[in-house]
Design a protein around this nucleic acid. Sequence first.
DNA 1: CGGCAGATTATCT
DNA 2: GATAATCTGCCGC
Length: 245
Amino acid sequence: MVASLLAEREGMSGECTDEQRMGVLKTMMEDCMAIDDPLIKLHPWLALQPDFYNRATQQVARDLLGKLMVRCVDGVVLSGIIVETEAYLPEGDAASHAYRGATQRNAAMFEPGGVLYVYMIYGIHHCLNFVTEECGVGSAVLIRAVEPVHGIDQMRMRRGVQKAEQLCNGPGKIAIAFGLTTANSFATVCGPDMYVQPGKDLGEADIITTPRIGITKAANLPLRFYIKNSPFVSKAKPAGEKPEQ
DNA sequence: CGGCAGATTATCT
DNA sequence: GATAATCTGCCGC
């Protein structure tokens, strides 16, 4: 029984050690417990609507923390609590793709709030953004890290790593785990197949603000937000910054 | 654990 | 031709 269950898990067919079996059983139990958590039941009728995204980008980035991001694809539900975001502002933000106006690449950023903007970076990775503010403005929130909740096994297969903390702790990893590419740009985040719903309630004390990561222009603006003490945030941090206290 | 090289392509100079 | 909102593996301590 256990052996056949294990055989269905990737990389666990054939002979494996008792320690490996216990590890897989442990992650399966953790998955079941996570889905039973009343805080993270699926409530698609509570999906955040465009008016949530049609606000100041920093505020949207901050308010997205603790929310549950849900994607339904190929009959599978993938979801996770958003634990780290970055704001890319419409004005005076040289790091934003929209800084020099609309191009073919960044066109989705000028859509109304509540639309997806997915772009390719370094030729190999994709990054997921939610467009913010009014149509034509050109701003978005980058989703940098997620705490996996539903479809964790599916994410393990897509990512090729086992530890839950490493499935979605970075923008490129999220795109792989959730199966998102540039083909998903212009889609809505307010529909049944892709939406964000209420999750954990957070206070100001739960949120850390720092400069953004991986950029060279406007690198000092405090526009990165993450949940304090979350083991699921991307490990990278701006040069010279200490971990949160 | 920290640092660094390499992968690989759309976009703009 | 240079650059980029990144990830992984390999190296040395």
